[in-house]
Amino acid sequence: MTRTAGAGEALLEVDSVAKSYGALDVLTAVHLSVPAGQALGIVGPNGAGKSTLLSVINGTERATAGTVRFGGRDVTATPADARARAGMGRTFQVPRPFAHLTVFENALAGATAGAGLRGRAADDRALAALAMADMLGVANTPAGALPLLGRKRLELARALATDPRLLLLDEIAGGLTEAECDSLVATIRSLHTQGITIIWIEHVVRALLAVVERLVCLATGVIVADGEPSEVMRSDAVRAVYLGGAL
């Protein structure tokens, strides 16, 4: 929002990134270039390496090989907190609330640490993030007392409070009812129209297709399909991944 990248200029570039835990290769040579303002969806079976890819992008995990560039800067060796301050927001698939803090204070942590705000500006940012995630009503509730849906929304609110340029969403719609899912889709779509670049991992394909303009399919640590969402969903590669059969 503050920095408007020209059309086609990549905000995020993932270049031949690999990640292995000992002998287990989770990601092998992943290439991904995401232009500023794009909404990108990632699908793939369990264990394909989707969450690991987000972790390598935001710095929660270090890549074993390859480089990650964000806003033109090489951030491969940059710690996660510095990447967050540079404008990467991330939600976790299994919510990680700050259980003893209130919902507002959870968001405030993002607004102060991530967005670097203080005083009234930080309060306002955190309140705006709660409003966007529809959590203002439970602002004073201890985060540890939230039900699953609340925890998922809290993940989103906290990430938004950091004022991200790039938002990494990890299965934020999983486990929601259809109505809840629709309101979440509306929220994410409005974030997209505000110009925030989004990378969204999701098993609920219907929700994903309602927002993203590009879809990537990840399987056994490599990208097997990348392109226009409906074409990707129809492609032989994706059918093979989900339904079995020769690639």
Binding site: P79, R85, R96, F98, H100, L101, A109, G110, R158, T162
Partner: peptide
């Protein structure tokens, strides 16, 4: 600001880091 940051670290270090702490 440090007070909130500290308590977020106490409750979940990975999430605190991902939020810029």
């Amino acid at each position: 600001r440090l007070g909130v940051a500290l308590q977020s670290v106490r409750d979940n270090e990975v999430a605190a880091r991902a939020l810029g702490v």
